[in-house]
Structures are given as C-alpha cells and as structure tokens.
Lab assay of single mutants.
Amino acid sequence: TTTITTTNEEDARRIATEWKNKGYTVHVEKRGTTFRIEVR
C-alpha cells in the first residue's frame, strides 16, 4: 500500500485519477486540510 498526502484538492484528484487509470485501487480520505490517498 502506498500512501500519498497533499493539502491541494486538485493534486489529490489528479493523483487519484492517474493511479486509477493504471489499474490500482485508490481510496481518498480527507483529514482536516489534508488529503490522504491510499493506493493498493
């Protein structure tokens, strides 16, 4: 599992989409101002 964190919502969406397009399972969680993107 790879975890990526960013405070930028646009980055979070872009990163999540990129990983999904590669065939990975992506889970995005917002904690306060931080977005945690888990890639499996």
Rank of each mutant, 00 (worst) to 15 (best):
T1I: 15
T1G: 11
T1W: 15
T1N: 10
T1E: 08
T1A: 11
T2C: 08
T2N: 08
T2A: 10
T2L: 15
T2I: 15
T2Q: 12
T2W: 15
T3I: 15
T3M: 11
T3R: 06
T3V: 15
T3C: 07
I4C: 03
I4G: 01
I4K: 03
I4Y: 15
I4P: 01
T5H: 11
T5Y: 15
T5A: 05
T5Q: 08
T5E: 13
T5P: 02
T5S: 08
T6A: 12
T6Q: 03
T6S: 07
T7I: 08
T7A: 10
T7V: 08
T7R: 09
T7S: 11
T7D: 15
N8E: 06
N8F: 06
N8L: 06
N8V: 08
N8R: 07
N8C: 05
N8G: 05
E9S: 07
E9Y: 13
E9I: 11
E9R: 08
E9D: 05
E9T: 04
E10Q: 10
E10T: 08
E10I: 09
E10D: 12
E10C: 07
E10W: 09
E10Y: 09
E10F: 09
E10A: 11
E10M: 10
D11Y: 10
D11V: 10
D11R: 06
D11I: 09
D11N: 06
D11Q: 09
D11S: 07
A12M: 08
A12Y: 03
A12E: 01
A12P: 00
A12N: 00
A12G: 02
R13Y: 15
R13A: 10
R13Q: 12
R13T: 11
R13M: 14
R13S: 09
R14I: 07
R14M: 08
R14S: 07
R14A: 09
I15D: 01
I15C: 04
I15W: 06
I15P: 00
I15H: 03
I15N: 01
A16S: 07
A16T: 06
A16H: 03
A16E: 09
A16I: 11
A16V: 11
A16D: 01
A16N: 02
T17K: 10
T17A: 14
T17W: 12
T17H: 10
T17I: 12
E18Q: 08
E18A: 10
E18N: 07
E18V: 09
E18Y: 15
E18G: 05
E18P: 00
W19H: 04
W19L: 09
W19T: 01
W19A: 04
W19F: 10
W19G: 01
W19I: 03
W19Y: 11
W19S: 02
K20E: 13
K20P: 00
K20F: 11
K20Y: 10
K20I: 14
K20G: 08
N21K: 11
N21Q: 11
N21H: 08
N21A: 12
N21Y: 06
K22N: 06
K22D: 03
K22T: 03
K22S: 05
K22A: 10
K22F: 05
G23F: 02
G23H: 03
G23M: 02
G23S: 02
G23E: 02
G23K: 02
G23T: 01
G23W: 01
G23I: 00
G23V: 00
Y24W: 06
Y24K: 03
Y24D: 01
Y24Q: 02
Y24N: 02
Y24H: 04
Y24R: 02
Y24C: 05
Y24P: 00
Y24M: 04
T25Q: 13
T25A: 10
T25M: 11
T25G: 05
T25S: 11
T25L: 12
T25R: 10
V26W: 00
V26G: 00
V26K: 00
V26A: 04
V26F: 01
H27V: 13
H27C: 07
H27M: 11
H27Q: 09
H27R: 11
V28F: 06
V28W: 07
V28M: 08
V28L: 07
E29Y: 13
E29S: 12
E29N: 06
E29F: 13
E29R: 08
K30L: 11
K30Q: 12
K30A: 06
K30P: 04
K30V: 10
K30N: 06
K30T: 06
K30M: 10
K30D: 05
K30I: 10
R31A: 11
R31L: 14
R31W: 13
R31V: 15
R31Y: 14
R31C: 05
R31T: 14
R31F: 14
R31K: 12
R31E: 14
R31M: 14
G32S: 04
G32D: 07
G32Y: 04
G32M: 04
G32H: 04
G32I: 03
T33L: 12
T33M: 12
T33W: 06
T33R: 09
T33N: 15
T33S: 13
T34Q: 12
T34N: 08
T34P: 01
T34A: 09
F35P: 00
F35C: 03
R36K: 10
R36E: 13
I37Q: 00
I37G: 00
I37R: 00
I37A: 01
I37S: 00
I37N: 00
I37K: 00
E38Y: 15
E38F: 14
E38W: 12
E38P: 00
E38Q: 10
E38G: 04
E38T: 15
E38D: 08
V39A: 05
V39T: 03
V39F: 05
R40W: 15
R40D: 08
R40M: 14
R40G: 10
R40L: 13
R40H: 13
R40E: 10
R40Q: 12
